[in-house]
């Protein structure tokens, strides 16, 4: 475990020293500032409308507007977290093999598995922290501006963090046998597959096409990131908003393809947990046998 922590510490220090963390913090401030300014404008506009009809505060329906603003803000956070997980770790293993830096590390009394596990751990801390900080910043900002807080933000952020871990672990696995470029392209294609699966599933439900729904379901097991987001989005919506969307789904079969109206299936969550563990175990095994 000592060696795993040592390699993880290297990954963390590298992120700090190469100004990755600094760049992320800067971009986070810009993103949050920009988005929250938009929320502020929305709140001002809704307050003005309420004043126009003689009310001293926005209508109750304004809560839906704030909920959607929070929802799509966190959708962006989820997307940025995924992007960050892939881009920051895409060269973590393959890049060091290609450059030869790994040679002076791998001959030391540290196992290959410890090297990969340490790198995974280091980048997991960076990327999960990023998602948590960004999501918390957005939630707190919206709460301060509008007074709105989603009903269950903790499980929602936890599912977003799990989604980021899925992408990170796949990227680390790819790095043990692909080149850096091929690995990056491969993981983004898988990410796209998960997203496409979510859309197909919604289209299938709207058009009553079971095959499309099944395809979407298969895609979500191959790449769980989109389904994890939909699970997270369930916890972010007020009960009345979910009921309204379900009514619409029951009426015409169509729903919003970017948000979910049901809590995540426990079986799916177990599958996703196993997915991360098996992917990581595969990465450790493959790298143990790789010639450096």
């Amino acid at each position: 475990m000592r060696n795993v922590l040592l390699v993880a510490e290297l990954a963390l220090r590298e992120a700090v020293r190469r100004r990755l963390v600094l760049a992320l913090l800067g971009l986070t401030v810009i993103f949050l500032g920009f988005y929250l300014y938009g929320v502020h404008l929305l709140q001002v506009r809704l307050a003005e409308r309420a004043a126009d009809i003689g009310l001293d505060r926005p209508l109750r329906s304004a809560t839906f507007s704030y909920a959607f603003a929070t929802l799509f803000g966190l959708y962006l956070v989820n997307f940025l977290g995924g992007l960050m997980a892939v881009l920051s770790s895409v060269g973590a293993v393959s890049g060091e093999v290609e450059s030869g830096t790994i040679q002076s590390i791998a001959y030391k009394p540290v196992s290959r598995s410890q090297i990969v596990a340490g790198k995974w751990l280091g980048f997991a801390v960076v990327t999960v922290s990023y998602v948590v900080v960004l999501a918390t910043g957005l939630l707190v900002g919206v709460r301060l501006i509008t007074g709105f807080l989603p009903p269950d933000p903790v499980p929602a952020v936890a599912l977003m963090a799990l989604s980021v871990l899925v992408l990170l672990t796949l990227t680390i696995l790819g790095g043990t046998f692909f080149t850096t470029l091929a690995n990056g392209i491969g993981v983004f294609l898988l990410y796209g597959l998960g997203f496409a699966g979510g859309i197909l599933s919604s289209v299938g439900a709207a058009t009553d096409t079971p095959l499309l729904v099944r395809l979407g379901s298969v895609a979500s097991y191959v790449m769980p990131s989109d389904s994890l987001w939909k699970g997270a989005s369930y916890f972010l919506q007020p009960r009345t908003l979910i009921d309204l969307q379900r009514l619409r789904e029951d009426a015409d079969g169509g729903g919003n393809p970017f948000v979910g109206t049901t809590p995540p299936d426990p079986t799916f969550l177990v599958w996703t947990g196993a997915y991360v563990l098996v992917t990581l175990a595969l990465a450790l095994l493959i790298f143990r046998r790789r010639d450096l």
């Binding site: 060696n3 040592l6 290297l10 590298e14 020293r17 190469r18 450059s99 030869g100 830096t101 040679q103 002076s104 590390i105 001959y107 030391k108 009394p109 540290v110």
Partner: peptide, 29 residues
């Protein structure tokens, strides 16, 4: 492995480290 030392032919480094940090890291490994 604890008793081996190796200078690779095309030695590449984590160049963001200082010389002391680099040696400390490899010594700890």
């Amino acid at each position: 492995r604890r008793k081996l030392g190796f200078l690779p032919e095309q030695f590449r480094f984590h160049t963001w480290m200082s010389g002391e940090e680099f040696l400390t890291f490899h010594g700890r490994l």
